[in-house]
Design a protein around this nucleic acid. Sequence first.
DNA 1: ATGGTTGCTTAGCAA
Length: 257
Amino acid sequence: MKVATWNVNSLRARFDRLKGFLGRHAPDVVCLQETKLEDSAFPVQELAALGYESVFFGQRTYNGVAILAKETPSDVIKGFGDLADDPQCRFLAVRVGNLRIASLYVPNGGEVGSDKFLYKLSWMARWRAWLSARPADERPHLLCGDFNVAPEDRDVHDPVAWKDQVLCHPDERKALTAVREVGYEDVFRRHHDAAGLYSWWDYRMLGFPKNRGLRIDHVYARRDFAAASSSCLIDREERKGKLPSDHAPVLVELAAP
DNA sequence: ATGGTTGCTTAGCAA
């Protein structure tokens, strides 16, 4: 089966591009981030017409995650269900067939040391806690989304300029390592060693034409499931042309559990 | 240090 994740930076603004993407790749499951749509505005019918059922957890203007699937999703989980009183819609998990999968949008973090940065670190700790609190066989096989962290310097176009900056800061990388230590693996790095492979490029300053990007969109697989993946690709084509998102989709081919 | 671009919402914020 084929699974994709894509930060669309507004589903309203990107709907035509999403349609083209679904037509080209025919993924079985698609995780979306930054839908920026209230649930009442989610294009359920339009996606049903394309052969996809939708599960969504959104809000007006900001954030918002969704999962589209050819098969009917079940076991829907919205947010971490912890004691934090968090109005931001950033985590959604479902089951599609036997595959458990989460679509997540880690907070950007603003500036290092800011309130937003502290929120990012605390959100990542809550994410890790949510995972470790679940029985291992009930954890998502795949964690997909905009993690807003470049895990290593080879994921960064200019590691010197980005050193200790948000998206690359050691505290964020440690928080991400803690998630992997629950029992996850970066699927992309199972299949590619090279530097210079990115999933996000700033809209400004010709970021994409100059390939000044970061690899911050990831698919993490449960360690007992990672070997089921046969490929993982970043679809740079989707960053080209008219009205692209600033993120490219990540696609994984895998044997269904 | 600021600016640059896009989206949502309408001047300014978030990314």
